[in-house]
Design a binder for these strands. Structure first.
Lengths: 209, 209, 209, 209
DNA sequence: CATGAATGAGTATTCATTCAT
DNA sequence: AATGAATGAATACTCATTCAT
């Protein structure tokens, strides 16, 4: 796990810009978090990727754990998902959220910007990060999406939709199963859409199986 | 990540039983793998959980990596899933696979036997284990299930169903989102079932969105 | 340091022959001793080369140290050297001892039978082996050869001749310097001979330099 | 092999001086190298002798091997020998080189500064160090000294003289044979001198023995 | 006589972290 | 604000050795 780009030019003591340094560290941390997870990444690697001295991790974040927590919290995907949940009508939600997920991580093997509450699942073995992920999912899906669903078990149905997106993201961005790794958005959309329809519509009164 | 039970009282040299020792190590490894992932678990922890001297990991497996690979490969869930794919008619598959997934890992926070190709996703940041998971998913879903699906994109639809199961397992067993963590099988089944119906049926001729 | 031949056919629990096993272990130990020295060789390697179970080292010798001591002590070269010192006239000694040294270790890079008090110098970093070597050299040279030399400083002159042989052996068998590694016996002999003549003859009354 | 002085009292974090730390490590490594050889010395021992934290070995040298290679390469004796070969007339060379050798290692049992391409022979079982020693000997003797010798086989005769010095050093500094361990320089000199005369003079046309 | 199982101490090396400049 | 020096605890893995069969 040393792959990510060495980044940054070695230019003397480095430009003295606290904000930029902080932000570079966070970006590097996000990248490494999605690849190696919490325990699989060292602060040295992160600092190297950010082109920054290792000890600045401690200056700016206090500890490896806090750096990674902040990195995990800082997710564009999460923000976008939440915005979508407020603005977009239910029937367009599946496609919109699919787009968020697809943008969030580059296709498997690619090297684009890593992001998304989803890719961070890799880091779920670390307790504090798992809690953070759980909170995010709860707010965004169980609560926000759930409250918009008619019929029985709204939280559960919302979470099941989240499950599909999470599984999809994992298989596409991390594991690389043959179909999901390469299928384009437009082929994918109708299927995700129909899962959404099934889960978002009020279920028929449950006949015990 | 030192939580799992210290197991076994330190009671003299331990009974001399190669097969049992090997198996205890594998069980302990599976447990730790699902909790801390590959890099998050030390061989010492595994050995302690198994109530076994640390060096026996190397006697029996040669390296941490090989121990965890074998542990990851040894999955009842995988076997059952594949059996189901051969014996069970398509319309009963969703429920059957759901049961496999639910049995595979104990509900979040519990301490039962950890298992399943799914729960091991935690370990997906380690390359060799990720490949193993990828192979398993490809064989079981993309190929075996895919070959049974009528209509277009069979592998993709098979993988999407796998994605739902994976996401479900992760959220229930690992992350613990409020609804999925506690919902019982019978409440869950109809929803998973209807996702299965949507994905397993031949899709209508796709109208470009 | 795992090179030496795996030896011995894997033929069931192995022929039950205490003497042969002991002797195989000693031979393997000599071989490894000259290559990796005491600390650079593990009992497992020795046992593997001997085609024997590792624990037999302890059955037959009690400890790694004792195995290697016995191996170091068992030197054909030493025996031959001592015999030469008794039987051979002074003026033929240099050539005779040269032959002992040349036979003792195969030319550098070759894989013949390793032997000789000389090659064991490699193992001189281990205290008990160093003492053994010291004893051997003292008896053979300082005492036996020394007692045959006329004139002043006989022990010293005997040891200086030993030094030449030791250095020669080391450079030829172990280090592989360009000339000594390849020169044949007949080219070498006259030079060693003339050193012998200089050292064995009674020195002129020393004029303080 | 834990003998060498534990050095330096454990007195707080130690003075912050990179150059001094590096150099202390090298000195300690040289000392241990001549006593225990490569495999017989642990980085902990070296660090302890240097009065330095063990991890600094890796900060400054990257690995045990690189530390010991650099330690072995850093030899005053080698420098002096080479200087002598340039400046000193042939007939004074034996005595000059003898002095280098005698200065290089303290008399057996003493605890002075260890040095010299010669004493490092102990470490010759480690491949990279053996190569280094071989290179040094080749340059200094086979080539530099060889090129100054008239007559046949100049490299060989140069190497034979090196062999005498090496054997002498080993027996005096490492093995401790009775005469060589204690004899003073002035007693030793005439004998080494006469060996030099024999080897440096053009040999009589070789009559096949 | 021979072997496999088990063990504790040790090895090189890396990590997160702190201190002084 | 940024850096290099220093540190202690941990990690994977190996070793010599003993015990039970």
């Amino acid at each position: 796990m040393v792959t990510p780009q060495p980044a940054a030019e070695p230019c003397g003591p480095r430009r003295r810009d606290a904000a930029a340094t902080r932000s570079d560290l966070l970006t590097a941390a996000r990248l490494h978090l999605t690849r190696g997870g919490f325990e699989g990444t060292s602060t040295r690697e992160v600092a190297a990727t950010a082109g920054v001295n290792q000890t600045l991790v401690y200056r700016y974040f206090g500890s490896k754990e806090k750096l990674f927590e902040e990195a995990a919290a800082q997710s564009d995907a999460h923000r976008e998902a939440q915005k979508a949940l407020k603005d977009v009508p239910l029937e367009q939600l599946p496609k919109t959220l699919l787009d968020v997920v697809l943008d969030a991580g580059t296709t498997w093997g690619g090297s684009g910007p890593p992001d998304g509450f989803i890719a961070f699942l890799t880091a779920a073995s670390h307790d504090s990060i798992r809690e953070l992920i759980c909170d995010r999912l709860t707010t965004t899906f169980s609560e926000d999406l759930g409250s918009r669903l008619p019929g029985a078990d709204p939280e559960l149905r919302a979470e099941l939709f989240a499950a599909t997106l999470i599984g999809l993201s994992l298989m596409r961005h991390k594991i690389g199963t043959p179909a999901l790794a390469v299928t384009d958005r437009d082929t994918l959309a109708p299927y995700v859409d129909s899962i959404g329809q099934v889960l978002f519509a009020a279920p028929a009164t449950k006949a015990p199986e």
